[in-house]
Amino acid sequence: MKNKPLRVTDLAWEFLRPMLNPGDIVVDATAGTGQDTVFLCQCVGETGRVFAFDIQAAALQQTKDNLEKSGYTDQVTLIHQSHDFMVPALKAAAVGEQAVKAIMFNLGYFPGGDQTITTQVETTMVALNGALSLLASGGLITICLYPGHPGGFEEAQAVIRWCETLEAPFVAHHFRTLNRKSPPTFVMIQRTR
């Protein structure tokens, strides 16, 4: 990563890596290309469980392909649903409240796919509210925001405003690049108890 700017996805990985353990239950709320899904598999190992959501079949297929290339398939459940169905889908898989150690959101569109299909404020807010109920004590929600595409700025602002209203036991942080126009930004929410 020498001489390359730090990406928001790099930040998410750097914060998550030291706090995830083998056997943890984790969620990739927006699978996309599957990079976050593979990363989560590496962190939770063979005894962990990874749930990956996406509304696009092409994204889930690319995620599946990346998982197979990386040797991770047994501990992953791919779910062809929007992230706002996360709570009922995990409940159906016998995952209860406060049982998930990390939930990753990489908002926007599927790189290399149909860029007119993007995450939406309404479904993202439902997913984030649900994620709070799933998050274990000490767990993290990471959110990569991309304000540069149509609708992205509004979605990013809605997420940031929502984070500002969170009360204990949640702590929210916002990281942004100061010298770029409309840069991606990174939000992290921790459950402290």
Rank of each mutant, 00 (worst) to 15 (best):
T33Q: 06
I143A: 02
Q56I: 05
P184F: 03
P22F: 10
M86R: 03
Q56N: 05
D84L: 08
A168G: 09
G71D: 11
G138A: 04
D65F: 13
R193Y: 15
G151C: 04
A158G: 02
S82Q: 10
E46N: 13
L134R: 13
V159C: 10
R191Q: 05
S133G: 06
S137F: 06
F105C: 00
E14H: 14
G71Q: 11
N129K: 11
T123F: 06
S137N: 09
C144T: 12
L135H: 05
K4T: 11
Y109H: 08
V100S: 06
G96A: 03
I25R: 08
T37D: 01
D84R: 05
E122D: 15
K69R: 14
C163H: 04
Q42L: 02
V50K: 00
V171L: 13
L134A: 03
V76N: 01
D36S: 15
K101L: 08
A92S: 12
N129T: 10
Q115C: 12
A131W: 04
L135T: 04
P147Y: 01
D54M: 07
L6D: 02
L135R: 02
V44D: 00
C41T: 05
D114R: 03
P169S: 07
L128P: 00
G45C: 05
W162I: 09
G32V: 09
K101H: 08
N179R: 07
I189F: 02
V27A: 04
K181T: 14
L128A: 04
A158W: 05
Q157S: 13
E46Y: 10
Y72T: 00
Q115P: 08
E122G: 13
M188L: 14
T9K: 10
T73E: 07
D10C: 11
S70F: 01
A156T: 12
V121D: 04
E97S: 15
L67P: 14
E155T: 02
D65P: 08
C41N: 13
A92P: 11
T77L: 02
A93H: 15
G32W: 08
Q115G: 10
V76C: 08
T185K: 10
E167H: 11
G108R: 06
N129R: 12
E14S: 14
P88Y: 13
T177N: 15
A92W: 07
